[in-house]
Simulated scan of single mutants.
Amino acid sequence: MPTPTPAPSTRAPAVLAALAALSLALSACADPGEGAAAADGAGEGSPFNLTPDQDRVRAEAVPEIAALVPDGIRASGELNVGHSSGGAPPLAFYADDDETVIGVETDVAQLVADVLDLEYVPEATGWENLFLSVESGRFDAALSNVTVTEERKDLYDFATYRVDTVSFESSVDSGIGEVAGPEDVAGLSVAVSSGTNQEEILLRWDEQNREAGLEPLDLQYYENSSDYYLALRSGRIDLYLGPTPSAAYHVEVAEETEIVGTVSGGGEIRAEIAAMTLKDNGLVAALEAALDHVIEGGEYQEALERWAVGGEAVTESETNPPGLPRS
């Protein structure tokens, strides 16, 4: 695991790379209005294919890696993968049929299932149900922008596949300057999804501000992107803190918000996005090996770049790396 790095500043390279890639995708799109998404935040003019027929990047089965799959899952012939139904483009979100889950998370899951010679079965659920569904065995794994934390490692195993960064979004006419640290959000109304690592960042920052005698944060909780973008437009909130890929996508497509700050998903330390399985059920070794195989073969990078998320790519998968510290 690389040494933790300080949080990047506003318009960090990863954000600029994402925005540049999105701009290129927009200019290359033959019909910008084709496949306008019903999904929250997608809108007309999307640079991506938002139809159920995804024509995903695929990989060949690798018998020696498939042999690592636990017998129970192998016998079923399926890899049941949970994705958050509250997600926003380009992570995991509904296609324009309002029922098929698409996005970079589904593309990575498909590659893993291919290598393991299993049928990929995606299932959508609320963020709060992802963890219980993996714990109960309803899902074999969850790929849904899940950050590795020490607390989560008590119950789950992780195989990493993306670097985690989060960004502050404001309306274009908000007048808010750079958000680089706790003092920059003092007294502001900030929206965030409950139970996420970005919520933990804001809670820590708010505590630091209170101890320094600064105004407290006004935290607002939203589960769907349509709700927080409506709140931004109406002025009910000053900022939204969420995953950088979704923020970069929305900035480019909607042209009504801007990114005013980017930090690591761990705040002051590096954070990792990972596939999550039930602890000690044996599946994580197969997932790590499958991810390493498609990283080496190039299919992984192709899938990420298909959704303009190449700036968060990793060079190898790791099992249970150091996670964000316990709160």
Rank of each mutant, 00 (worst) to 15 (best):
A66C: 12
P6G: 00
E128T: 15
Y228D: 15
A313S: 15
D53V: 02
V314T: 01
G195L: 05
R56P: 02
P90R: 01
E296F: 04
S85T: 04
G41C: 01
G86N: 05
A308Q: 03
A38E: 07
A109V: 08
G72F: 13
E288K: 14
V192M: 07
R138G: 07
L130G: 12
V104Q: 00
G310L: 02
S189M: 06
G86A: 09
E78S: 13
E268A: 11
Y222R: 04
V121M: 09
R58Y: 04
V166T: 12
V294C: 15
S234V: 01
N80L: 15
G33D: 12
N281A: 10
V163Q: 14
R152P: 01
F168W: 09
V163A: 12
A231S: 14
D107P: 08
A75K: 14
G181V: 07
D157P: 06
S193D: 10
C29T: 13
A141H: 03
Y229W: 06
A290H: 01
P322L: 02
L239G: 02
A231G: 12
T125Q: 13
P243D: 12
G310S: 06
G265K: 09
R58I: 11
D280R: 12
A180D: 13
P6S: 00
V314H: 00
L19V: 06
A289G: 08
R138T: 14
A66Y: 14
P52Y: 14
G311S: 15
V62W: 04
G266I: 13
Y222E: 06
E123A: 03
E223V: 11
D164I: 06
A61K: 14
L24S: 12
V112S: 02
A113G: 05
A254M: 10
M1W: 11
E223K: 09
E258C: 09
N320A: 02
E268K: 07
D96Q: 08
E288S: 13
E64F: 02
M276T: 10
A142I: 06
F131N: 01
P321S: 11
A289D: 05
S171R: 15
T106C: 08
V81L: 05
T244L: 15
E312F: 11
E305N: 15
Y228K: 04
S264V: 10
D238K: 04
